[in-house]
Design a protein around this nucleic acid. Structure first.
Lengths: 257, 257
DNA sequence: ACACATGTTGGAACTACGTTCCATACTTCT
DNA sequence: AGAAGTATGGAACGTAGTTCCAACATGTGT
């Protein structure tokens, strides 16, 4: 179908006319639409119109909408990760994660996309970068994967809940407004359903999402630091899975069901 | 439009014929479809067919598909949270989170739905329950919100990446297969793009998702335990935001950009 | 009992979007 | 120049969420 990096031909794609459609141009135009109008604004028709072409032509460069979104997210992630860098691993992780947070808050579609398709390139980039920093942090090899996984999944969880602008209309049928900043202060039937949330209601409405995100990162970094200090009784040799060192910190009880 | 819990009338809805459409029946049927065929199988037409009615009739009880999915997820979450309970808070948290993980792996649509709409009822239930357990854990009040938030967001992040069965076809255009169990062992161009992932490749293919999920929970619990032990220099009085105690564990450097 | 008001039902129709198809045009190789 | 293969773009298809509306059931007031 379309020419990709993996074509077995030795034949290089010739340069056609200057306004030729390329995956790069399409993805760039897609990002422009996404940043301007959000995820709903990106349609193949709108994209084709912006590129002065037809919808069908796009399919010679992009397999489907999912690939288009993955590519767009990957490009955004690459830019974020390119900026953030430091000599100190912990500082790097803080800068990295803060950069991702900023990008997601600035462009909510990114958060939605990161959690829409599992293990897409953008997530792999993030995972790899965080894994490298975790390694530099001195975490023993057997725990590096778990440590990076915890950080990445936390970030993705935050990303998933952060496109608050839209989508919250559909969850409102049961609780119109809810913690919508100032409207309904979580009273009435919610008091019985959500005792904890009601108790910390003031923090709920007054808290800063960014500070809370940072706090979560610090919690996980603390936990990772403990991993590093508990290296003693873990075998150094081959890859030992099944029993992760962290499971020796707190004796786990059975919790299947 | 439809009658809900919040009607101001004193008038109670009379019981019509026994096969009357109700939101409860609709949600139940939706869950059946979702569990059987996944998220794609749930259409208003299929749902209407199962209930021997028309699609239009459903809209008198459910505002839109988003509300339907939120309600279905909320019911699943309520069941999971009802089961898991213990006297020891840490044990409770482990049992709770493990239960949610099991439910998500058993019913992948749940994971997708939890991250599709932010702060939907199912997420609030989980947040509230975890918050209560965190409180019982002895975490100081000012840090309870952050601690619960970290756990919930981590779980949501895992949920987002766990419906691996589908959706990964669209991200495959660049890397056909990737870590798809055994097919493409992460070689070729990936070696340069993802140095960390390549290095831990063996763990990647051999690791147990469940064990890694547990490991993440333990990391966060360790970080939360540190929060509890660092209560000393935090004012006990009113709600102090802006500076979370955890931020005093590791001196944060500036990381805006 | 009988009309009226109100809420319910269910099927058709509308709309939007992803995707496919195909005739046309373009570029390069021989 | 002719052949071969790719790119283009617009029409057309299929699907799914949602809306519309006429027929119906239910309860109220007389």
């Amino acid at each position: 179908m379309c020419q990709d990096d993996l074509v077995s031909d030795v034949w290089q794609r010739p340069e056609r006319r200057s306004d030729a459609l390329t995956k790069a141009r399409i993805v760039e135009a897609a990002i422009t639409i996404l940043n301007a109008g959000g995820a709903d604004a990106l349609t193949f028709r709108a994209l084709a119109a912006d590129l002065s072409t037809g919808a069908g032509a796009l399919y010679h460069h992009v397999a489907n909408k999912g690939e288009l979104l993955s590519a767009a997210a990957a490009e955004m992630m690459a830019e974020v990760l390119a900026d953030a860098g430091s000599t100190d691993p912990a500082t790097s992780i803080r800068a990295l994660t803060a950069g991702v947070f900023d990008e997601i808050t600035a462009h909510p579609w990114l958060g939605s996309q990161l959690v829409a398709a599992p293990w897409q390139p953008a997530v792999l980039q993030l995972f790899d970068r965080i894994g490298s920093e975790v390694t530099a942090l001195g975490v023993p090899e057997a725990a590096q994967f778990d440590a990076a996984s915890a950080l990445v999944h936390y970030i993705l969880g935050v990303a998933s809940q952060y496109d608050a602008s839209q989508h919250l209309d559909q969850a409102d049928a049961d609780r119109p407004g809810f913690i919508a900043s100032s409207t309904s202060p979580l009273v009435g039937p919610d008091s019985e359903r959500y005792p904890f949330l009601v108790r910390i209601e003031q923090q709920l409405v007054e808290h800063d999402d960014r500070q809370q995100f940072y706090a979560g990162i610090e919690i996980i970094l603390t936990g990772i630091a403990a991993l590093r200090d508990t290296e003693r009784d873990s075998a150094v040799g081959g890859v030992q899975r099944q029993e992760h060192p962290c499971e020796q910190l707190h004796a786990r009880t059975d919790n299947r069901h």
